[in-house]
Amino acid sequence: MRYFKFTIIMSATTLAALHPGDIATIVSIHAEEALHLRLLALGFRSGKQIELIRKASFSGPLQVRVGTTDVMLRRVEAAKIEVLKS
């Protein structure tokens, strides 16, 4: 039972699957080089905390906060960022 719970809490998911208000830690970024570089420059790095602020309606983009920067990105791109929900 304890193991079960453990796996649920620690299960890795992607940024796109988070809900508004969720805080998670970035595990890895599986993006092509151009996007990867841009995300790095915006402060997306493994181990950094990320907060999902809101999702736009009609499957629109996400607003996330990394450090002191608020960033919008589309769901397709967010699905390439693996996070660990805390």
Binding site: A31, A34, L35, R38, L39, L42, P61, Q63, T69, D70, V71, M72, L73, R74, E77
Partner: peptide, 11 residues
């Protein structure tokens, strides 16, 4: 458009 669409939302 080949540039990643990741925009800052400044204060």
């Amino acid at each position: 458009n080949t540039e990643p669409f990741v925009l800052e939302l400044p204060p």
